[in-house]
Design a protein around this nucleic acid. Sequence first.
DNA 1: TTTTGCACCGTGCACGTGCACATATTTGTT
DNA 2: AACAAATATGTGCACGTGCACGGTGCAAAA
Lengths: 337, 337
Amino acid sequence: MATMKEIAELAGVSRGTVDRVLNHRGDVNPETEKKILEIVKLLNYQPNKAGIVLAAQKKKLKIGVLLFGSEHPFFDAVMDGLRQKLEELSFYGCTIYEKRTAFSLEEQLAAIDAFITEGIQGLILSPFNDIAIQKKIDYMADMNIPCITVNTDMPDSKRLAYIGSDYYKCGQTAAGLLNLITNGNANVGIITGSHKVLCHEERIEGFTHHLKLNCPGITISAIVENNDDDYTSYDMVLNMLSKHPKINALYFTASGVYGGCQAVIRTGLKLKVITFDALDTTQEMMRKDIISATICQQPFEQGANALSVLVDYLVFGKLPETELNHMDLSIKIKENL
Amino acid sequence: MATMKEIAELAGVSRGTVDRVLNHRGDVNPETEKKILEIVKLLNYQPNKAGIVLAAQKKKLKIGVLLFGSEHPFFDAVMDGLRQKLEELSFYGCTIYEKRTAFSLEEQLAAIDAFITEGIQGLILSPFNDIAIQKKIDYMADMNIPCITVNTDMPDSKRLAYIGSDYYKCGQTAAGLLNLITNGNANVGIITGSHKVLCHEERIEGFTHHLKLNCPGITISAIVENNDDDYTSYDMVLNMLSKHPKINALYFTASGVYGGCQAVIRTGLKLKVITFDALDTTQEMMRKDIISATICQQPFEQGANALSVLVDYLVFGKLPETELNHMDLSIKIKENL
DNA sequence: TTTTGCACCGTGCACGTGCACATATTTGTT
DNA sequence: AACAAATATGTGCACGTGCACGGTGCAAAA
């Protein structure tokens, strides 16, 4: 691998001039610049990362992480992934500042403002689906503070990249899975989450669309929206199952399913149940054969990838290859948890 | 984070002495050493990776990679993972030397010898299951050339770590999956691979054991061993299906399943088929609804992790946390490929 | 002619570590 | 007492990059 020193020697200039060209610092004769750039191209010069990191040692990166829930298992896993990657990248000397908010627009906006005044250089967040957040992200982008969205996206904003699931595909996968384990015949009840978050809608769209095209024997008997993620779902599911006795399968679009599963246990029915993610409670219900299978969105990897992408940008100036970084979906049953 | 310089100042010695203590270079007064080690512990000193890498710049690492098949899709994926990680770790300035052999003990032994004479500093290999290979690995370990096994292990050797599947768990997962998609009732035919490789046996053990314990409605109607991985399986499967007309499910323990699937197509039967990995041909058969589901062992990640572990050891002297690094098993259906 | 300003370029330090070499101190020998 | 040997410690360079500072040369203004 070529170094700046070698390039300088070949171009007959000093290392400083090469540095000015490569870092667009100006004050270079156009001809000299051209010559240097040619050599750079010829040698396929790639800056030495260890050198960059070492030189950047003193100015420590401050990175903000803004997620939901004070002890939400999914976002806890995202944080775990972030922290592991942080350790791996320890020599970049960056620090993570974590904030968790309730599921509230105002709180999230306030947290972002706090981050800005604290002087973070980059932000990883799971954005609330609201135009105000979009504007805030755009504002930060203009201030040269890159944002990465995880788990939920803000597609029309100036965010640097999205790391998370393709929710339409989540729905399709759930449909395909249900089709497989019911041999193509089922009456399914859907318990969805708040549509203040886009992902639930998309998970239903993908699901219903796929059923329509491929699974004539599966019908949707009922859909209920469960705003409070978990606590209220017990009654909802009980209610749904008594109203629709034909139901022999359930599809939960949110990861908090404990209450709903308790309801299933209560009824004593043998249902096929499909959920998302593998939280502790979900794993418990899988071992009890209440949940048949779960579709995992790899929160740990989401966190790790998010930090990777952000650090690559901040330290090495490398833009992510794609704005949409969709995670692999992995189906888990109790045997491969 | 503390640096050697800071430790030296606190201990009232020079950086060189600290260096001698930390790198076990000797020639240090026991009292001084004790004092330094105390400060090291107190400050929780972690060496700066960028510094280490930069200092190690000139001596380039040569790492050998020894896999099977000249164009085997699974091992190609392992190589892809290796190469991606290599790029990520580009600043360690290490080079990968790849060798592929046929599925032959002699060839593999010869390849290892060639690597040794070429002067590699570390080896990643998928070992043939033979005592001669074990001895060779031990010999290398004694020569201070660490070995990492991928995909298949050599448990009793002095290899640094194994990166790959837990094959017993693979079998269990296959059984659980079959149980789920057949609603607990099936007559299954098993097509296994050469037991020159341990993994097939373990995949069958895990499978049968799990069936015995949990799935009374599933019976194994036939088992055939298919040494040649793929080409001969067409006839075998045709033969098996005609001999055992009750069979309504197939379990392939090897990833090469194209011939077998062609046989299934030929018969026109609607079977539940479970396989491993998601090679191109496997994906094709999933889209045609011949294969119901496949259990992926993440070859890409195996390659990436193997290089990670090896470089961590060679560059930073960090021992892997565990000898057995089992990959997450991910079930794929056609919707989440 | 001297001075000022500008465009362009070189030098040198810092970052943290590994390692070779030089230096200082103590111990042992004649 | 003088000197060698052994032990213990310090010094300085290299690695590749970023960046501040200080030049040099040349033209225009004083």
